[in-house]
Computed example of a mutant assay.
Amino acid sequence: MAPHILIVEDDNRLAELTAAYLAKHGYRVTLHGRGDSATAFIPEQQPDLVVLDIMLPGKEGFDVCRELRPHYTGRILIMTARDEDVDEILGLELGADDYLAKPVEPRRLLARIRALLRRGQGEDGVETVTDEQTLRFGQFVISQATREAQLAGEPLELTTAEFDLLWLLASHAGQILSRDDIMNALRGIGFDGLDRSIDARISRLRKKLHDNPDAPTRIKTVRSKGYLFSKSDWE
């Protein structure tokens, strides 16, 4: 069955044009125009991906995203006319998987949706570990099969995007991954030099892994090169 995409957007013309374009590319698309009712509608429908506007009647998209995350396991792509870094970071912190500023070229939106729905990594230049479903580093354990991670026996509360990034880094432990490597593996596009979403997720992962933000040892920053997941320092 074709993946189901829900567009939560109060601009009816934009929503209909976007839906028609995605339908042409094989997706089932449902439209919804209000934020307040979306928080009940989405958990009931459980679409594969939600394209969520920020400025919505009834309840803004950030609040919808915050309320949805405990009840919805699919992907959330925030799309908004407000092109501000703080909005992007806030959306990602609330559990969104990706962020696009309007106006969005349809082909770019389609590429992001395809990347978010793609299961597994390694299709865009970075080979991941495919024969290991569980990785262990001292007290840290991460399972691709169950999409869960634990540190010292305590489960980590991770968004879908955070888990994908953490698995990618852990499955390449001891190897430096550039931002371009990461963007290609997770989104299917290269790093444009301006996107801060990877840095924001790394910062949140470090907090959840109890890594020192001033001198991280578990997810290290290698200057001018990228990020390195340490094989040690997990006791």
Score class of each variant (00 low, 15 high):
98 D>F: 00
232 S>Q: 15
57 P>H: 02
79 M>I: 14
65 C>P: 01
47 P>I: 05
40 A>L: 15
206 R>S: 13
49 L>M: 05
80 T>Q: 01
112 R>F: 04
75 R>Q: 12
235 E>L: 07
10 D>R: 03
217 T>D: 11
2 A>Y: 01
150 Q>E: 15
90 L>P: 00
162 E>Y: 07
117 L>E: 03
224 S>L: 12
114 R>G: 08
169 L>I: 07
27 Y>V: 11
3 P>K: 11
32 H>G: 05
77 L>G: 11
26 G>F: 06
194 L>A: 15
206 R>P: 04
100 L>I: 11
222 V>P: 05
195 D>K: 04
47 P>G: 08
185 A>F: 02
197 S>H: 08
220 K>Q: 15
227 Y>H: 04
203 S>E: 09
176 I>S: 02
90 L>F: 04
111 A>G: 04
87 D>E: 14
32 H>N: 13
212 N>A: 13
185 A>S: 15
106 P>R: 01
19 A>M: 08
83 D>S: 14
152 A>K: 15
70 P>L: 04
86 V>I: 14
72 Y>C: 03
70 P>D: 03
62 F>A: 10
180 D>Q: 11
138 G>S: 10
100 L>E: 07
39 T>L: 15
190 G>H: 13
115 A>L: 05
201 R>E: 08
97 D>S: 06
6 L>I: 09
160 T>N: 15
208 K>V: 06
196 R>Y: 02
173 A>D: 04
129 V>L: 14
126 V>M: 07
3 P>M: 02
11 D>M: 07
226 G>P: 06
45 Q>Y: 03
35 G>W: 08
105 E>Y: 03
80 T>L: 10
131 D>S: 14
165 L>H: 05
207 K>P: 00
107 R>I: 07
193 G>I: 11
180 D>I: 06
220 K>D: 11
168 L>N: 02
77 L>K: 10
221 T>W: 05
153 G>K: 13
113 I>V: 14
45 Q>I: 13
89 I>L: 12
182 I>C: 02
28 R>V: 13
161 A>Q: 10
234 W>G: 09
124 D>A: 12
127 E>Q: 10
13 R>P: 00
145 A>Y: 03
108 R>D: 07
155 P>I: 06
218 R>P: 09
222 V>L: 11
235 E>A: 13
205 L>G: 09
99 Y>G: 07
61 G>C: 08
33 G>L: 04
95 G>C: 04
137 F>E: 07
87 D>A: 13
29 V>P: 06
176 I>Q: 05
85 D>K: 13
5 I>W: 10
192 D>F: 13
122 G>F: 06
34 R>I: 02
93 E>Q: 14
117 L>R: 00
71 H>F: 15
114 R>S: 11
11 D>K: 08
179 R>Y: 12
96 A>D: 01
191 F>A: 09
164 D>E: 15
122 G>P: 01
165 L>D: 06
213 P>V: 09
127 E>C: 00
151 L>M: 14
148 E>H: 12
62 F>Q: 05
131 D>C: 02
12 N>L: 13
18 T>V: 09
78 I>K: 08
22 L>Y: 03
70 P>S: 03
134 T>M: 05
149 A>N: 02
219 I>V: 13
95 G>R: 04
134 T>W: 01
69 R>N: 02
83 D>H: 09
94 L>Q: 05
98 D>N: 12
17 L>A: 13
83 D>C: 01
205 L>R: 09
112 R>T: 12
139 Q>P: 00
110 L>E: 02
199 D>P: 07
21 Y>I: 08
